[in-house]
Amino acid sequence: MQDFGAAFLTAFDLLIGADAALLEIIGLSLRVSITALLAAGLIGLSLGAALAVTRFPGRGFILVIVNSMMGLPPVVVGLVVYMLLSNAGPLGFLGLLYTPEAMIIAQAILILPIIAALSRQLIEDLHAEYAEQFRSFCVPTGRMMVELLWDARYSLLTVMLAGLGRAMAEVGAVIIVGGNINHLTRVMTTTIALETSKGDLALALGLGIVLLSIAIAINAGVMALNATAKRQAYA
C-alpha cells in the first residue's frame, strides 16, 4: 500500500503548513480533553484516595465496579451521555448536546474510573507504608488523603497522562455527543473517522500521525518537567 508513505508526507505537510483549520481542530481536542482531565482528575483522585484509606462494608464491591469501569466502551459512555443530554432526556433543558461541554462530560466520565482505580492502587500501596506512622501521629483521614496524594504526586502524573491519552484517543463518545460539527465540535479523532469514511486513508492516517506527535510532545514535556522537579526538589 502506498498509503503509508503518503500518510507520512501528508502528516509532514499538515505540521509544516500549520493550516488554520487543523490548528482549530487540535486546539479543540486539547481544550476538551484537558478540561475533561482536570474535572476527572479532581473527582478521580479524591475518590481514589478515599477508597485507598478507608475500610467499610461493600468496599470490595465498589473496587470491582471501579476497576471494571476502566474498560467502559466509549460508545456506551457516548450513548448514555447522549440519552441524558438529549432534548428528550432528563438534562435536555441544559442545551448541552452537540457542544464541546457535552464532549468534556463524556470524556470525563470515560476517564474517571481509570484515574480513580489507578490512583487508588498507588495510594493504597503508599498508605501501606505510611499507615502506622500516620496512626501514631493521629493524622485525620482527610488530612491523610491530602498528604498521600501529595507524596504520590510524581506517580499520579503518569495516571493523569494515561487519562489524557485515553481521552484524546477516543472517538466513540465524542462523535455521538458532539456530532462532529465542523468548527464547533470537530476534534482530531472525529476528523480521522470522517476522512476514513471519505476513503481518504492517507489524510486520515496523516492526521493520526499528527495526533500521535502531539501526544508524544505532551508526554515528553511533562516527563521533562517532572524529572527536573524531582531531581531538583524532592526524591
Partner: peptide, 13 residues
C-alpha cells in the same frame, strides 16, 4: 510518639 525500626519519612524535604 513512635519511632519505627525503618524510619517512615515523607517523600519531601
Amino acid at each position: 510518639a513512635m519511632v519505627f525500626q525503618r524510619p517512615v519519612l515523607l517523600r519531601r524535604s
